[in-house]
């Protein structure tokens, strides 16, 4: 059986009740999960022997700007045993922009989540060390949000004086 079919079957079997939505673009499979089972779902992906998505390649977020649920967290996971990739998407809570962390599943999520926090201001609950990744701690904005201008906000970052 094709691995994608197997993947769909295993996942719908494990998480019944329409909690998962599959979509496909070109040959890439995306699964959207609801926020409450996000961490559980990721843990299953990693620990299940048939799937074995052991490598978290990337974790990022998308700012949809005008949509109702504004931010979506996207994780790209890779199964070395099956040479197969999967996108996992989860919507972020609109009230306080928060979602659970997957650092407990993959350690590498630590820095990825810090980066997302820095760039989008999404708070990852239970993250061990949530602080800014790139920008200085004093910086008050989140640059990759759509309302942030490309050239930044004048005066938001200090420069040393030219004596």
């Amino acid at each position: 059986m094709d691995f994608k079919e197997l993947l769909k079957n295993v996942l719908t079997e494990q998480f019944p009740g329409g909690k998962l939505q599959f979509s496909e673009f070109t040959d890439e499979l995306t699964v959207t999960v609801s926020r409450d089972i996000y961490v559980e779902f990721c843990a299953f992906l990693k620990t299940d022997e048939r799937l074995a998505f052991v490598l978290l390649e990337d974790l990022t977020a998308i700012d949809w700007a005008t949509r109702k649920s504004r931010f979506t967290v996207v994780a790209h996971v890779f199964s070395i045993a099956n040479s197969s990739r999967l996108k996992v998407k989860a919507p972020v809570d609109d009230k306080d922009f928060s979602i659970d962390t997957v650092t407990t599943v993959w350690q590498t999520a630590n820095w990825h989540e810090r980066e997302v926090f820095d760039m989008y201001g999404i708070i990852f609950k239970n993250h061990p060390d949530l602080r800014r990744m790139y920008m200085p701690e004093e910086f008050a904005y989140h640059p990759l949000r759509k309302e942030f201008p490309l050239m930044g906000i004048p005066g938001s970052l200090p420069l040393p004086k030219k004596s």
Partner: peptide
């Protein structure tokens, strides 16, 4: 690099 984090010329703070 016309972007928010890049100093647009170091002559702003260095001779």
């Amino acid at each position: 690099y016309r972007s928010y984090s890049v100093v647009q010329g170091i002559d702003q703070f260095l001779p």
